[in-house]
Write a protein that binds this DNA or RNA. Structure first.
Ligand code: MN
Ligand code: MN
Ligand code: ZN
Ligand code: ZN
Lengths: 144, 144
DNA sequence: CTCGTTATTGCAACAATTCGCAATAAAGCA
DNA sequence: TGCTTTATTGCGAATTGTTGCAATAACGAG
């Protein structure tokens, strides 16, 4: 039984990449936060611990970790956010009224993915979608 | 029978906003382009016609026109792109292998929207989604 | 443990995007 | 047409994100 951090470390090395202190720090921060965070939020936390780490390194690390699927990125209300990827994908509903964010299981999209494969010969990679709209309370408030 | 530009002009005024030369120019450019364009592409074209128009105005105008739904924005292979909104929404499939972009009709998402309303009481506003994945030729190339 | 390869970093310049604020001008009205 | 209101612009500066390159350091081999 490996910890999540150990599994990630192994994955990075297996792919021929290196586990640097900068990468570990960013993973620690995201692991402790346990929620969506913007690049700036992450950079600020990195700074408060290791001021020598450069901004470019943070951006490059976030992109790198997304590419090897250790992280997932998403756009929520116009902001790019990052988090550690779950073993099973999840998605989000975002209310444009109250800005509330809810989690959505992957199964809602399986049907869609099947259609895209059937009808368009396209293997969709639906990882971490965000769907904007209006929640029930906000709809009631708007129409009432 | 109104032209598309006239309808947009009317919409802007009806909502209490103003139709400025800057807004008209940006709409003309997008209308002539008739495809996805980045903010930088649009700014460059604006510059070549009206060098006095400021970069901030272009960004503010693009955001404004998206908010009132005259434009739709999207993220394609990591870049934010804009285009004039069709009367009927469309979406895109983007292959991460060959970067090819295809159009997808709205009907693929009606089922999903219905589920979200039923099961989550959420009125999804699915306007202009982008789904990344692999097209058939790229899958064949990868596995073959 | 030491060495060599090369992935990764820091740096610095650059490009893209956002923001506050004072000046401008669109649109409705007399 | 001329006046008033205030939405919108331009400007300058701050913030955020990207890039080329030389210096550094992770990690496998010996
Ligand atoms: Mn998430
Ligand atoms: Mn489109
Ligand atoms: Zn809401
Ligand atoms: Zn392809």
């Amino acid at each position: 039984m490996m910890s999540q951090q150990q599994e990630i470390a192994q994955r990075i090395r297996e792919l021929g990449f290196r586990l640097t202190p900068q990468r570990q720090l960013i993973l620690d921060i995201l692991s402790a936060l346990d929620r969506h965070a913007t690049a700036t939020e992450i950079y600020d936390q990195v700074q408060s611990v290791s001021p020598a780490v450069n901004r470019a390194t943070v951006y490059r690390t976030l992109n790198f970790l997304c590419e090897i699927r250790v992280l997932v990125a998403g756009t929520i209300s116009g902001k790019t956010v990052y988090e550690i990827a779950d073993p099973t994908p999840h998605h989000h509903l975002v209310c444009t009224g109250c800005k509330h964010v809810t989690v959505l299981g992957d199964h809602h999209f399986e049907e869609l993915a099947a259609h895209l494969l059937d009808e368009h010969d396209f293997q969709a990679d639906i990882d971490h979608l965000t769907i904007h709209g209006l929640c029930q309370p906000c709809r009631a408030a708007a129409s009432g």
